[in-house]
Amino acid sequence: MSVAAALLPTRRLEDYRYADLAALERIWPVAVEEIVVAPGEGGRLVLVPEGENVARHLAISLGAGASFDLRILNAGHAYGRVAIDVTIGEGASFTLGAAQVGGGEQMLELVTNVTHAGPDAQSRQVVRSVLSGHATGTYLGKVMVTRGADGTDGEQSVRAMLLDRTATANARPELEIYADDVKCAHGCAVGELDTQGLFYMASRGLPPEVAKRLMLQAFLAEAFVGAEAEEALNEAALAALEPLL
């Protein structure tokens, strides 16, 4: 580990703007976990970090025509941070589905830096957060399309649901494009549970906590659609939701 890497970052660094530096200090330094997917190969990973205070940092490199499917459940930590750097080669495809579930004073953050280094590659990020109490959920996501990476298809869909007005969601999807013929979409929304939907469900006999659970489960499930471990992830997300209801 180099000396520079061992230095605790400051908030002046964009990627650490909302980080809990006191918590981070206790677990610093954070080792970078490298994942290399060879050209034409496929890979997948389900990441469910564990621990009171936890930070993970993945660096993923996708060769030409490779694919990678990453699913993350970031829940239940006092401080939980996941940083993902991805470099995508020509014609490769990267999928991220992440759910963050927090209550109390919990602080959860997901920081992604996706670089389209070659043409005709795809990246798709779906991030869903459910936050209650005084919890904070952060998504900082940058998609960089380098010169020559024409035909890039990049998508970021970021939504957060606040169960209490005291909870906070930070969301910053970002695009930096230096190529032509690029399709990049990003959507970002922070909202509350649909009260009309809740009344509709109650009018059929569902108690409020059951109605909320059904709606939030469905909301988080959007992050896990198509995952090989879809069912297990949905169950884990439901378990993380329970204390918030």
Binding site: Y200, S203, R204, L206, P207, P208, A211, L214, F219
Partner: peptide, 30 residues
């Protein structure tokens, strides 16, 4: 929800959409 359990049903003029929750799941729970 207690009114529903007591046997009252309200048919809506504009039934509400609930994304991601199937009718089957919703109605069985209800």
């Amino acid at each position: 929800h207690e009114r529903a359990a007591a046997g009252l049903f309200l048919g809506f003029q504009y039934p509400v959409e609930i994304p991601g929750v199937s009718f089957v799941q919703f109605l069985r729970e209800a």
